[in-house]
Simulated assay, not measured.
Amino acid sequence: MITSFFKKSKSINFIIVFLISLLAIVIGKLLRVEEGFSFGLLGKLLGTVLIVFASILLLNFIVNKNNLSQNDSLSIFLFSLFLLLFTQSTIYFNILISNFFVLLALRRLMSLRTRKNIKEKLFDAAFWIAVASLFYFWSILFFALVILSLVLFSDGNLRHWIVPFLGVLAVFVLSTATSIIIYNTYFGFITETYNISLDFSVYNSVSYLIAITLLFSFGAWSSFFYLNNIKKKKKAFRASFTTIIFAVIIAFLIILIVPNKNGSEFLFLFAPLAIVITNYLEIIKEKWFKELFLGILIVVPFVVLML
């Protein structure tokens, strides 16, 4: 019953998704601030709402435009549930912005399957990932998706391999020029350290352990079937599905190595994992198991909120 409700993209589905996301934002922003209400806080809240909603619409566009699911709204529904599961992911605006630019890059990479305007799309994808790294450095790892796309989509043209690096160079030049004007120094836009940390002690709480266990166990199980099902997809779309699973791997790597672990780093995992789990739900034949699988994903975020 639950899965059939999200079978088609209806207005009510988007309203539900936006309400769940709004709840995650409000809890993340308002219950974790020490200062009282102010117009500055209201402005931050509105900015967060806009960027989260824009990310949801962009994810929905990527999924439907590239036939990554059976034209339903289940992927964005799962994305909103993940936000509620990790409300910390809505706190840090720089990571929200970075994830939005990564989604923009993913959109351009997915469109490479048409074999049209390849150089423009490669440049745009690399450009957006480089911009994302200005807000959160470790998102630069998603540049590996550009290289992967060159292998999967490109025709071997040498110029296609040069274009992505020109996109990164363009961002570097523009950032340096802006830094000189604003900060009177070449690299004033660099505001964070690039250390690596494998200290996971911050996750040593009941709420974190439940959320992480749910995300990784359901994600790993779904990924196994997702990989086996890729070869059954139409040849024109196989590269797109392969790109998604590599996006999951890169997001997982970011979670492992980021120095400041606070829960917000899971945000990069939500969109590609939502697509993977949606595809798994679509191939489950036992209706009772499908409803149970999705039901757990719905109930657990609300349980975590009460801990």
Rank of each mutant, 00 (worst) to 15 (best):
L273P: 01
F101N: 01
T243H: 00
A105K: 06
F39W: 14
I56D: 02
F53V: 12
I249L: 15
F39C: 02
I298Y: 03
G263R: 01
F153G: 00
F268C: 02
A271R: 08
S38I: 10
Y136C: 01
F225C: 04
T191V: 09
G263D: 10
I210A: 07
F189R: 01
G36Y: 12
G43C: 03
T243A: 14
Q88G: 02
E34H: 13
F270G: 02
A132R: 10
L267Y: 15
G263I: 04
L19G: 03
N204M: 15
S111A: 12
V146R: 00
K7W: 04
G43V: 05
D155V: 08
T3M: 09
E120M: 13
F252L: 14
E192T: 15
L134F: 13
I296M: 13
T185P: 00
W128L: 09
L22V: 03
I245R: 00
F101P: 00
F86C: 06
V299K: 13
F137H: 12
L269N: 06
L269I: 11
V276L: 13
I277S: 07
L152P: 00
K121A: 12
F216P: 04
I147G: 12
N184V: 09
Y280N: 11
R32T: 13
F137L: 13
I284C: 08
I15C: 07
N279P: 04
L198K: 03
Y183T: 01
F200T: 08
V163Y: 05
A220L: 14
I25Y: 15
S9A: 12
Y92W: 15
K121T: 00
F172T: 08
L297Y: 05
I230S: 07
A125V: 06
G219D: 03
G40V: 08
S205H: 12
R113M: 02
V26S: 14
K231N: 02
T48N: 12
I249T: 04
F100S: 03
N71T: 00
G263Q: 07
Y226R: 10
L292D: 06
S38Y: 04
I56K: 06
I244R: 10
S223Y: 12
S223T: 15
N204G: 05
S55G: 08
E291L: 12
W138Q: 11
E35D: 13
S264M: 07
K119R: 14
K234C: 00
G28R: 11
I162A: 13
E282T: 00
L59N: 08
I16C: 07
L104I: 11
